[in-house]
Structures are given as C-alpha cells and as structure tokens.
C-alpha cells in the first residue's frame, strides 16, 4: 500500500511538470443542464447563451478558455478548491453566495422566476412545490409555506410535476418557457412571476481579483456595444429584458 501511495504522489509530482510554462488557460465551469443558459448540444459540447457570452468575454479579455461541466451541488466547492476558475452556470448573485465567492457584474438582468404546474388551479402556497436544490428558488419556496421537494437537476423538477409528485415547480422563467411551449398544453404557467436574485453573474474565487476585473471590463464593453443584448434576444426571444 505504501508503495502505491508513494508511487501516486511521485507520479502526481512529476507527470505534468513538462506542461508548465506555456500559455495559461481559464477553465469555465458550468452545469450543462439548464437550457437556454447552458446545455450540452447533440455533439455533447457545452452550448447555449452562456457559452456564447463566455466565449465572447474570453475573446475580449484575451484569455484562452476551456469549458468543463460539474454537478450543480458541488459547483462552488470545486471552484474554491481550484478545479476550475469560473462558474458560468446561470448562477444568480445572492448575498449568501457572495460571502463565499465573488461575482462579476450581471450579464443577465434580474428576472422573474415562475411557477409551472400541470393545471391552472395548482395550490402554490399550501401544496408541494419542486425546485432544484441549492438555488434561490428552493430558498424562496421554503419561505412560502409550501412543502418543498428538492432535486439535484432541473430536469427532475419538471418530471416531478409531470408525474404528479409535485403540484408545481419554481424555476427561472426562461428555463421553463421552452418546456411549456413544447408540452402542448400539458404544462402551464401559474400565478404571478416572482422576482428573485440580483441577476446572473459569473462566479470567481475571491482571491482572483485580477481576472474578475478583466471579465468585468469585458461585460461592460459587451453591454455598451450591444453585443450582449443581441445574444439575449437570440437565446431568450424578443420579449426578454435587455440592458
């Protein structure tokens, strides 16, 4: 056992040394399961609004970026321990998260979350409401008095509503809209939209101030020349909020 451990350490210490010193790569961490923000396309590559925004930001900041996917639940711990350098995963800027990581300015304006149910008379305040775990929506549902059931992926929250396990699901309206459109009347928006969060920003380690400034500047320039608005309209439709 000792030799295996030592061997692993030795391998770890030496194996990648040869790659040191070349250009630096910024690793962009995302979930890959939240269209239109981020999802895996038919080729299995990260695609979506954030892919395009992220690539454009990297181009403007003159950084080489690489995309990686990580499960939502462990997306912050893996950032702070350095497995990737940014979180660009439809993550709303909240005070709780801001204590652990830093956010760029928002690249997606504060928008409404919405309830979706299988019938228009679903009980949103006293019934069972599904949400993805560790999201602002889950926090909100817990505060309304409805029974909250949490799921690890957004997909499962929708499936719970279809299966009748939950009366409704609370998620970002932009994530739900394509699903409601494609459901052919099976799923409907219920109740009023709920404004939550301070917009979506990119998460970085608190110690990465220099990179944060670069990305912030890139977002500012994209807001100024209208690139960001064009992308917002491309992915979220004409009615979406723009800058």
């Amino acid at each position: 056992m000792k030799s295996i451990l030592l061997g692993t350490v030795a391998l770890a210490l030496t194996s990648v040394a040869a790659f040191a010193g070349s250009h630096s790569v910024v690793r962009m961490g995302t979930e890959g399961a939240y269209p239109p923000y981020n999802f895996l396309n038919d080729d299995g590559e990260v695609d979506g609004f954030e892919r395009e925004v992220g690539d454009e930001m990297c181009a403007r900041a003159e950084l080489t970026c690489e995309w990686v996917t990580n499960e939502w639940d462990s997306i912050i711990p893996n950032l702070v321990s350095g497995n990737y350098d940014t979180i660009i995963a439809g993550m709303s800027i909240t005070d709780e998260r801001d204590e652990v990581i830093d956010f760029t300015q928002d690249y997606f304006p504060p928008t409404a979350s919405a309830y979706v149910a299988a019938s228009a008379d679903a009980d949103l305040m006293g019934g069972v409401v599904a949400a993805q775990s560790a999201t602002i929506q889950a926090g909100y549902v817990a505060s309304t008095g409805a029974a909250l059931i949490e799921f690890a992926t957004p997909e499962e929250t929708i499936a719970a509503v279809r299966a009748g396990e939950a009366d409704a699901v609370l998620a970002d309206r932009d994530y739900l809209a394509p699903l409601v459109d494609a459901s052919g009347g099976e799923l409907v928006f219920v109740g009023d939209p709920v404004p939550l969060g301070g917009g979506v920003g990119m998460g970085l380690r608190e110690s990465d101030g220099e990179m944060l400034a670069k990305f912030d500047a890139a977002i500012t320039s994209m807001k100024e020349d209208g690139t960001l608005n064009a992308l917002l309209i491309k992915w979220f439709g004409e009615d979406t909020q723009t800058y």
Binding site: A12, V16, S24, T64, E66, V80, G82, R205, E206, S207
Partner: peptide, 21 residues
C-alpha cells in the same frame, strides 16, 4: 488559505491550469 480559497502557485496546480482537458 485565503478565506475560503485554496491558493497554490501556478506551477503547483494539479493538473496545471493550462493542461489539456
């Protein structure tokens, strides 16, 4: 250790930040 962050020098990252996927 800087707050929540774990910071080592770039040469010590494992794998190196610019290593292939």
């Amino acid at each position: 250790r800087q707050g929540n962050d774990f910071i080592v020098c770039a040469e010590a990252k494992l794998p190196l930040g610019n290593a292939a996927q």
